[in-house]
Amino acid sequence: MRRKWSGMALALGALVMSAVAHAAPPSAEMLSNACGGCHGTNGASAGPSMPSLAGQNKDFFIDAMKKFKSGERPGTVMSRLAKGYSDEQVVAMAEFFAQQKPAPAAQKAAVDRAKVAKGKSVYNSACKRCHLENGKDFEEDTPVVAGQWLKYLQIQMAEFQSGARKMSEKKTEKVKSLTADDWDAVAHFYASQK
């Protein structure tokens, strides 16, 4: 009803009215569009270090935002930006990005084929249980890692190795014998997946 009245007022050439009182709360699209300046349109990052969010696992996304907010996961800008959103808003954005078509990164040049081969065998022995289908699929709160930007994967893996970013006990156990080269090889393997 209120919208009706404001439309009439405009049509009659009355002063431009404040639309605030009539506006719906920020939609998932409205909230998520604001992230695109860094993560790319609809979460498809143009790289090379900024992660794509398109097609990301919703539960992982929600968990990540929670951990940025609480400081449990290290972040540069995300620790601050995550504080700007309510739990409901985070869920809305997680759903929005999960629905976007996954955008495997165009990074042929950066990916090293020898490392990809080695990475595949490390993957099979230490990662496959959780990062399903070569990193394309997921269960529970495991992220999609296939086709993610190489540089981003390397940064995150370095944080796992240094302990700055925590791993579950199960994962810690599974990856404890990995060398830095092993980690780097899986990064190339994940990045090579389309």
Partner: peptide, 29 residues
């Protein structure tokens, strides 16, 4: 939104890496 405004805790090499990708992404948009 309270809490969302803030500056980096320190000079950061990692932020320089991310900044390069920021400009790439926003110009790509």
């Amino acid at each position: 939104v309270p809490g969302s405004v803030g500056v980096s805790p320190d000079l950061s090499e990692l932020e320089a890496v991310y900044a390069q990708s920021w400009v790439k992404n926003i110009l790509n948009e």
